[in-house]
Computed example of a mutant assay.
Amino acid sequence: MTAVTPPAPQHPPVSSFGGTQTLRADLVRVRLPMVNAFLLGEPGGPWVLVDAGMPGTAGLIRRAARAVHGDRPPELIVLTHGHLDHVGALADLLAAWDVPVYAHPLELPHLMGVAPYPFPDPTVGGVMSALSPAFLPGPFDFRPHVRPLPQDGSVPGAPGWRWLHTPGHTSGHVSLWRAADRTLVAGDAFVTTRQETATGALLNAVTEVRRPPAYYTPNWEAAAASVRGLEALNPALAATGHGHPMAGEPLREQLSALAAQFEARGRPARGWYLGHPVPVHAAQRGDPDPLRPIVLGALGGVAAAWLLWQARRLLH
């Protein structure tokens, strides 16, 4: 049976990009610019990478993995979903590690060059939302590495873990759950920072349970249902795609409050997708208004340059 260590303390979290934080004996957080990746598996044994960070961060991920697992490559990579900030370094990682990549079947069109995600929504409020046209919706193409997660809910290469379909942020979003110690890798089903703000996204300035990033969530009804489903599990530790891990009573109280009051705490006051949610039971395709990507394309270039400058400044 896997050895279980107590949940990680709330403070001080890892502060440097590329730094690692041991959450369980076999679960390590890798902090990256704007996002987290995770290493599943005890040092010295087989391990799995969860998510692949922003573009340009492959070196940080490989260096962190080497510090924990030496020169042993992962058995495979699991994606909670395929947004740019979770697959940005994937091509570079696959060039070094020729391993399979697993995702929910509804994510595969976005990861195999077939369909882009719905365009990010810069109208939901916050600086990062205004800059969200920089987060390209794809489609991305990682063939021939990509394959669907097993239908039985198991996570390849990670005994004891199960994947849970937690749609809303994307149609095929998944979270990873281990019932033995009530450990949750939530992806972006909920996060623990105010991702729509610059200080929240880049510095994780405040640690609190929050809705999924609003600028890239096209189905709020499904997002609410996913939060409620995860809250019902009563996780002891939650490692999220954005923000610092949370554990114990603060996690329980804040996740319960978000689940119970999602209409007030979760749904944005405005946004493109509030009245026209993207259906969950089909792969999300593009933007409902084809003019929006054209109009906002120039803003995306400016936003991308700003984000790159900020990330480089924080890395040094």
Rank of each mutant, 00 (worst) to 15 (best):
A103N: 12
G88A: 09
R66E: 11
L76C: 15
A91T: 07
W97S: 09
G82C: 06
T57M: 00
R72D: 09
E107S: 04
H81E: 15
A67W: 00
P100T: 04
R72K: 13
G82M: 04
A52C: 11
L90S: 12
D92T: 06
A91Q: 05
L108Q: 04
L108V: 00
R66D: 02
G70L: 06
A91S: 04
D85M: 09
R66T: 15
A103E: 15
G59V: 14
D92A: 11
G70F: 10
E75R: 10
H86T: 05
P100F: 00
P73S: 07
M54N: 14
G45S: 13
R66G: 08
W97Q: 06
R72W: 03
L60E: 03
G88L: 11
V101D: 14
L93D: 08
G88Q: 12
A58T: 15
V101R: 10
P74W: 01
V99L: 02
L76M: 10
V101T: 09
V48F: 11
A103G: 12
R63V: 00
V48I: 01
V78R: 07
G45P: 03
H83E: 13
L76R: 15
P109N: 04
V87M: 05
V87T: 14
D71P: 00
L106Y: 02
H104M: 04
I77L: 07
I61Q: 02
G56K: 08
L79Y: 08
A52R: 03
W97M: 02
G70I: 05
D51Y: 01
G59M: 13
L108Y: 11
G53M: 00
R63T: 05
D51F: 00
H81T: 01
A103P: 15
Y102V: 01
M54V: 10
P46K: 09
P105D: 13
G59Q: 14
D92Q: 09
L76T: 13
G70W: 12
P105H: 12
E75L: 02
A89H: 10
A95R: 15
G88I: 13
G53F: 01
D92S: 09
R66Q: 10
L84Q: 02
L49D: 11
A96S: 13
H81F: 13
E75K: 12
G70H: 05
A96W: 05
A65W: 00
R66Y: 10
V101Q: 12
A64K: 00
Y102R: 03
G59K: 14
G59D: 14
G44W: 15
L94N: 08
L79P: 15
G53E: 02
G82N: 08
A96F: 03
D71N: 04
L79T: 11
A67D: 10
G59I: 11
P46H: 14
A95M: 09
P100R: 07
P100H: 04
A64Q: 02
G44T: 14
G44S: 13
I77F: 06
L60I: 01
D85Q: 10
A65K: 01
V87C: 05
R63D: 00
P55S: 03
L108H: 12
A95Y: 06
H83N: 12
D85S: 13
V101S: 12
D85G: 08
H81Y: 15
V87S: 06
D85T: 13
L93V: 06
D71E: 14
R66M: 06
P100L: 03
G88T: 09
G59W: 10
G88N: 11
L93I: 06
A64C: 00
A89G: 06
R62T: 06
H81L: 03
H104Q: 08
V50Q: 05
